[in-house]
């Protein structure tokens, strides 16, 4: 009812309505849901909405929570500048 006004991914401003509609029409995995809607692809790397996206996937596909983490993590897991990434300093 208020789902179009309910933002799930704050970074990319993806609404609950969009996510549910996408999950229902494609009956897809969390990863596909993320790629189709951009939910979880913003600045925070999905730290705020990852669990919500997973729960939408599960509820729309009637799956139980898998033991493997549905939305994988990739390095860098924190925002860093290219200069830090390019640095080669070992201690």
């Amino acid at each position: 009812m208020r789902d179009h006004k309910t933002i799930i991914c704050r970074c990319e401003e993806v609404s609950l309505e969009d996510l549910v509609r996408t999950a229902e029409s494609y009956r897809c995995s969390s990863r596909e849901l993320k790629l189709r809607t951009r939910a979880g692809m913003g600045q925070c790397g999905g730290r705020t909405c990852r669990a919500l996206v997973d729960s939408i996937t599960q509820k729309c596909t009637n799956d139980s929570t898998p033991h493997d983490i549905p939305l994988g993590y990739q390095a860098p897991i924190r925002p860093i500048t290219f200069s830090i990434m390019g640095e080669k300093k070992d201690e």
């Binding site: 704050r10 401003e13 600045q43 925070c44 730290r47 705020t48 925002p79």
Partner: peptide
């Protein structure tokens, strides 16, 4: 404000997770 929609934002998590 949100880079695309212009909606205003402030502190949310306060511990470095949400980037808001």
């Amino acid at each position: 404000c949100h880079e695309e929609t212009g909606k205003l934002r402030g502190i949310y998590c306060n511990i470095g997770h949400c980037m808001e």
